[in-house]
C-alpha cells in the first residue's frame, strides 16, 4: 500500500507494526527504495510532514503531540504490544480529531480496535481490511465487531484507495 501512495501525497502517514525489539529489522530502509513517498523510522520530537511515512520504532509507543511533532514512550505494553496500535490511534485522534483516517490490517490480537473506536468517536474515517483477505483476521474483525468501522475494503480496493488518497482528503483552509 505504501508503494502506491503518490509522491505528492498531501498528508503524513504513521505506520505501526508489531515487531520484536530484540531483533533489528530494517523494513523502513528496504521499503524506502520502492516507494515514491519518504519512508523512515519516526524520530523523537520530529514534525510530521506530508508525503512521508513514519514507522514506530520497535519497543516504543508512538504518540502525537499537539504541536504535530511525534514523541516516543516506553510505558507499559498495551495488548502485550509496544508499539501498540491503540495507543497511537488514540493519541492521533486527540490531536487530529475528525481529520484522522485509519486503516487496520491483519494481526493476531485485538490491538487497534479501541484505537479505531477513538477515531470513530472523534468523527474520523475508519477502514478495516476485509478479514477474509487478511493473513490473520483477528485484528480487523475485532474492530468490525466493535461497530466502529466505516468501510471494509478488500486488498485490491485498499490499493485503489491508497493510489487515489489525495482525492479523499478534504481541504480545510
Amino acid at each position: 500500500m505504501l508503494q502506491v501512495l503518490p509522491e505528492n501525497l498531501s498528508i503524513g502517514v504513521l505506520v505501526i507494526i508489531h515487531r520484536n525489539a530484540k531483533y533489528e529489522t530494517n523494513i523502513e530502509t528496504s521499503l524506502s527504495d520502492k516507494c515514491r513517498i519518504v519512508v523512515k523510522m519516526a524520530e523523537e520530537k520530529e514534525y510530521v510532514k506530508p508525503a512521508t511515512a513514519y514507522f514506530a520504532p520497535a519497543g516504543y509507543h508512538l504518540l502525537m503531540e499537539p504541536d504535530h511533532s511525534m514523541s516516543l514512550d516506553v510505558s507499559e505494553p498495551v495488548n502485550f504490544c509496544r508499539p501498540s496500535i491503540d495507543v497511537t490511534m488514540q493519541s492521533v485522534s486527540d490531536v487530529y480529531g475528525a481529520s484522522t483516517a485509519a486503516i487496520l490490517l491483519s494481526g493476531a490480537n485485538q490491538d487497534g480496535a479501541k484505537g479505531m473506536q477513538s477515531i470513530h468517536q472523534a468523527g474520523g474515517l475508519c477502514i478495516a481490511q476485509h478479514p477474509e483477505q487478511a493473513e490473520i483476521a483477528t485484528m480487523p474483525a475485532s474492530a468490525i465487531a466493535l461497530g466502529v468501522v466505516d468501510v471494509i475494503l478488500k486488498n485490491d480496493e485498499l490499493l485503489t484507495f491508497s493510489r487515489q488518497l489525495n482525492n479523499y482528503i478534504l481541504r480545510r483552509d
Binding site: L63, M64, D73
Partner: peptide, 9 residues
Amino acid sequence: YSRASLKRR
C-alpha cells in the same frame, strides 16, 4: 513534559 505522554498518564 511532552503533552501526549502526560495526558495518557
